[in-house]
């Protein structure tokens, strides 16, 4: 079973020192102080791809859109068991929306002849949760989103469990080739092994620029997008929100009083 897994590099928001500041353009955030990691859901997608490969054979190809810095997350996915990688990198790709992003991913995936495409169900930075679905439409394959369990029925069919509200698991059968947008928590992402790291550090990452994608400039980036992001803004503090200030001792005491007053504890 040949699998493609799409990975995105995102700011590490688990780091308590991460501060988000809008940059001078108003259309981006200052990334200079971020450390970057693989998107959480994509990490589970990578693990799912490797588990399937270990059980059923085949190859796993890692696909990413990003600059050279994204090699870090690509190589880590290779170290965990990925076989090859493609990175889509061109200045013209900046400001691609869901549709343009899916179009770019399709250009890298369409000739790989894969049976299964895995993505994370949502990126932790922009939170669209739509690239996987748009990509499935463009590849003209069925899809399932928020997938937590994947079982191979036969060489044509998968049984997938989608996680709904309250943890309810909805079981579906889906024909391959297909696309699954993977939810977090369905497996336990492994750590890269030393052997994997050594091999991955030598593997080639194929880079595709605009010309290599076969797309035209008006199909990518802002001009290829249906939705154009115009401005970031910081939410204003509303009347109903009370910002508690002071030392940890003061803030915790104030918070405890509020919780008591409202009868919440």
């Amino acid at each position: 079973m040949n699998i493609v897994v799409c990975v995105k590099q995102v700011p590490d928001t688990s780091d308590p020192d991460t501060e988000v500041h809008i940059d001078g353009t108003g259309r981006g955030v200052d990334q200079s102080k971020f450390s970057f990691v693989i998107n959480d859901a994509d990490n589970y997608a990578v693990e799912e791809a490797i588990l399937l490969k270990e059980k059923h054979g085949g190859e796993v190809t890692v696909v990413n859109i990003g600059g050279e810095a994204a090699n870090q997350v690509i190589r880590m996915a290779l170290a965990k068991g990925g076989d090859g990688a493609v990175r889509l990198d061109d200045e013209s790709f900046v400001y691609s929306d869901v549709v343009a992003t899916a179009r770019l991913l399709k250009s890298a995936i369409k000739d790989l002849g894969c049976d299964l495409v895995l993505t994370g169900c949502m990126a932790s930075d922009d939170g669209y949760g739509a690239v996987g679905i748009a990509l499935a439409q463009m590849l003209e394959v069925p899809h399932a989103a928020y997938v937590k369990t994947v079982e191979v029925v036969d060489d044509k069919k998968l049984k997938v469990g989608r996680e709904l509200e309250g943890g309810l698991l909805e079981m579906n059968e889906i024909e391959m080739p297909c696309l699954l947008a993977i939810q977090t928590g369905g497996n336990e992402p492994r750590y890269a092994s030393f052997k994997g790291i050594r091999e991955a550090s030598k593997k080639e990452i194929k880079v595709m620029d605009l010309a290599a994608t076969g797309l035209s400039a008006d199909e990518v980036g802002e001009s290829g997008s249906v939705a154009v992001m115009t401005q970031y803004s910081v939410p204003e503090v509303g009347d109903l929100a009370e910002m508690i200030e002071g030392d940890p001792a003061e803030t915790s005491a104030k918070l405890a009083n509020i919780l008591k007053e409202k009868g919440l504890v």
């Binding site: 870090q72 190589r75 880590m76 170290a79 750590y191 890269a192 030393f194 790291i197 050594r198 991955a200 550090s201």
Partner: peptide, 10 residues
């Protein structure tokens, strides 16, 4: 090296 950076990351 790439390998050393990856070990640190892991």
């Amino acid at each position: 090296t790439e390998e050393q950076k990856m070990v640190r990351l892991m």
